[in-house]
Design a protein around this nucleic acid. Structure first.
Lengths: 350, 350
DNA sequence: AGTTCTGCTGCAAACGTTTGCAGTGAGGAG
DNA sequence: CTCCTCACTGCAAACGTTTGCAGCAGAACT
């Protein structure tokens, strides 16, 4: 029913190849012919069939975008930026949600592979080796994970976590908790690594809780354990967890930041809206989305270019952090000792 | 480079048509042959090329999903549900963001039309007539707008707005404000219509502010005007605006709900996390996403089925609403009179 | 004048599938 | 034994493009 290239050809009295060239290689056709063809096309409402084009050129002008959880407010700005950037280049974006599940993620990559020119893998939960394997089938750009040999875009969350810990130890906190993210997360490992370093440098002790689901609920669930452990400040894997944690702490009767300080990571819109306003590490999600699309598309034909982009993060100090406890009245050491094994146990788990 | 149907045929010693049937009409091929073909396909990593399939069948197994703003937390749950529902039926979803712009929206529909089997138009900003026009090119399901002659899924926000106003007038509020949404929004009109009705029934006066951009910022921007108008309670077009409004009111020194009550619409995750917890009308976004996909896909070949789904909403009373002002000490009537023209003016605008 | 070049256009093969039709052989009915 | 049916499989056309090649006219050289 819709007009095809043949209809336009017939109407404008030229061969279909000329019509084709009018669209895909305008400089090869006589200006007069071109305007005539364009007029007919316009009048017939002709739009090239992308499936047919894809069939022969092998390029679909689509890109896939796989995220762990669309409902996590960290992702929408990234998706939005990627979509807009892609659209500017006449690309469209398939968005898929892996539900934080590595197996689903793999399925999605495989399913999408045939109908896209490349895939943006955001905060993947798969193993590196699987990702490398899949990248042989379809161009991949990995966001929020460093993998040598593949193009990647990461937020320098290690730097950010370091700043956060420095901030806390600077406020006098000597026992700091880290609420880890989900199991497969590279970011979570990075944060832990960097936080541990910074804690040591600042003369503080770091206790790790997790892994946990990276949601508000995941944060709330660990609140009691955090409180029992006797830490006076906590860095959470992301804002959502930090917010959940604060809720949980309030529910347990603790005050933030008077009794315990909390720092998040991401700086989602939400973190300015809760009470207390969240101190957090701002990550440039939109910039990452744009960079990833650029990288995928620049990439072009020469597959083996493996660029790496590392985006700066920034500590945003708001109201959820305050001075550490008075050194003479701090928590019962027995309690503290009890907490240590937990930390070790969860450390070993991942 | 990737395996084609021909490779599988050669490997398993059958004709390509048999391979094709193995996948698209398994009952037509001998079980033995089928298993052999499947084995070869598996081994070669064969996946049918959807573009080629689309070319001949005319079905792409893709659907488009256009929203006004991905970053609006109302949409992600809807998108997530739609994506999941679609994936269950082996469909994939193109997500696009119109930036609240009707012209962009039209472009997106046109661009997507050729490569999807149908489009979900969520909270469109286009005119009804344009939507009807476009629906001749591509099957459309409209979400959050009632259009006769097209399949639609709406949240019964009129009912919800009525409940909200009843709640407020029940609390003794006699002068209620309505912070309207964006210009092209059907939902905003519905809310206004229903709120006006309910206000009259409850013996309250309704003052309309807007239209406004449906964002936190849009809500904050109108705070001062709301305060000056002397209303003691406000219903906002959505939670985001309600939250922005509360921020704005706080900034002006007003307390919520002591000085002024605020009700939102949507019940986004956020509304439970701010302080005070927001009283709001819960809309079933995920259910709407699923219903819309079902409708589009059930639709199938017989184009002219125009189902309508109307999803129940529900008032969730939290902490941002409280009793109305003491009748003897209410706002300066001169002030109130000054506010009325504003309302009328903005009413006429849309 | 002959030759080459240039700018444009047509021809036809190809991309990887699906699908109506025709062909095959085996088994059952008469 | 013959004929019909049935279950399966092969054949080839089609879907709407792109693109290498060839053709053709006229312009610009020699």
């Amino acid at each position: 029913m819709p007009a095809t290239i043949r209809d336009v050809a017939r109407e404008s009295g030229v061969h279909i190849s000329t019509v084709s060239r009018t669209f895909s290689a305008p400089h090869l056709v006589n200006p007069d012919t071109r305007t005539r063809v364009l007029a007919c096309a316009e009048q017939l409402g002709y739009r090239p069939n992308r499936a047919a084009r894809a069939l022969i050129t092998g390029r679909t002008f689509n890109v896939g975008l796989i995220v762990a959880d669309i409902a996590n407010p960290f992702f929408p700005p990234l998706i939005k930026a990627a979509e807009s950037q892609a659209r500017q280049r006449d690309y469209h974006i398939f968005v898929a949600d892996s539900n934080e599940d590595a197996a689903v993620e793999e399925d999605l990559v495989r399913a999408l592979a045939k109908q896209v020119d490349g895939i943006l893998l955001c905060s993947p939960r798969m193993s590196n080796s699987l990702i490398e394997l899949l990248s042989r089938d379809v161009p991949l750009v990995v966001v929020n994970r460093q993998i040598t040999g593949l193009p990647t875009v990461v937020m320098d969350v290690a730097q950010g976590a370091g700043l956060a810990i420095d901030h806390l130890s600077g406020l006098g906190h000597r026992r700091i908790g880290l609420v880890a993210g989900p199991r497969g997360s590279w970011t979570s490992k990075e944060i832990r690594r960097s936080a541990a370093l910074a804690a040591r440098a600042g003369g503080a002790e770091l206790t790790v809780f997790g892994p946990n689901p990276p949601t508000e609920h995941g944060g709330a669930a660990v609140a009691e354990q955090v409180l029992r452990s006797g830490v006076s400040a906590v860095l959470a894997y992301n804002d959502l967890m930090a917010i959940g944690l604060i809720e949980g702490l309030h529910a347990q009767g603790a005050r933030v930041p008077a009794d315990i300080s909390v720092v998040g990571i991401d700086d989602i819109a939400l973190s300015r809206l809760i009470h207390p306003k969240l101190t957090t590490v701002a990550t440039p999600a939109a910039a990452a989305g744009r960079a990833a699309v650029d990288m995928l598309l620049a990439h072009g034909d020469d597959r083996r270019t493996t660029a790496h982009a590392s985006l700066q993060t920034e500590l945003v100090i708001r109201d959820s952090t305050g001075p550490g406890p008075d050194p003479h009245s701090h928590a019962d050491p027995g309690n503290a000792a009890a907490a240590a094994p937990e930390a070790v146990a969860s450390y070993a788990k991942e």
